[in-house]
């Protein structure tokens, strides 16, 4: 169904994604920002679908929209006085514009300098889930295990820090 539907879908998803990203960065209410972050992740997932990367799209939704966004929301809602605080926008617009323009120039020069390959037709050269799994546990086993260890360290560290805090604010019994 390349053609009209592809174009329409692409534009709709792109608009959603870019708008949500803009809202996330400019929204003063943090929790609303998280909601727009969820829409942003969903938009990215949709774009991955369009690029025939189904597995990546689903993992994006499950991990990012389903877990990371929830984590952000928990942090914001559970930290007192953060949810209500409104982030003041810096008034130093001039410096902001200059930096943004410089960054844009850098990115554009990189983008336009490279030859971009055409999006491959589906079925030709797509990685199947089996191949992905084989690669993860075969060629890239060491990075995979290292990443798992990093996650474990983060998990244990978070539990220890939270446990220590709970100990300090112990309930009287």
């Amino acid at each position: 169904m390349d053609g009209l539907f592809y174009q329409i879908s692409f534009w709709v998803l792109a608009v959603i994604t870019v708008l949500s990203a803009l809202m996330v960065t400019t929204m003063q209410n943090l929790t609303r920002g998280v909601i727009f972050l969820v829409f942003f992740f969903l938009g990215i997932g949709g774009l991955y679908f369009l690029m025939q990367a189904e597995f990546l799209a689903l993992v994006q939704v499950v991990v990012y929209a389903g877990a990371v966004a929830v984590l952000f929301a928990f942090v914001i809602m559970l930290t007192p006085r953060v949810a209500e605080r409104e982030i003041k926008q810096s008034l130093n617009l001039g410096a902001g514009f200059i930096l943004a323009a410089l960054f844009l120039a850098l990115v554009l020069s990189l983008l336009l300098g490279q030859p971009w390959p055409e999006l491959a037709a589906p079925g030709a050269g797509t990685i199947t889930l089996g191949q992905l799994g084989q690669a993860l546990l075969g060629e890239y086993l060491l990075p995979f295990e290292l990443v798992s260890v990093v996650l474990l360290v983060a998990l244990v560290g978070a539990v220890v820090i939270a446990g220590r805090n709970a100990g300090r604010g112990e309930r009287k019994s």
Binding site: L42, F55, L58, V61, V62, G66, A67, V70
Partner: peptide
């Protein structure tokens, strides 16, 4: 990847 899609959708609704 229908199975994964089902879980993605259900996780979305819980948020």
């Amino acid at each position: 990847y229908g199975l994964l899609f089902a879980f993605a959708a259900s996780g979305l609704s819980s948020f």
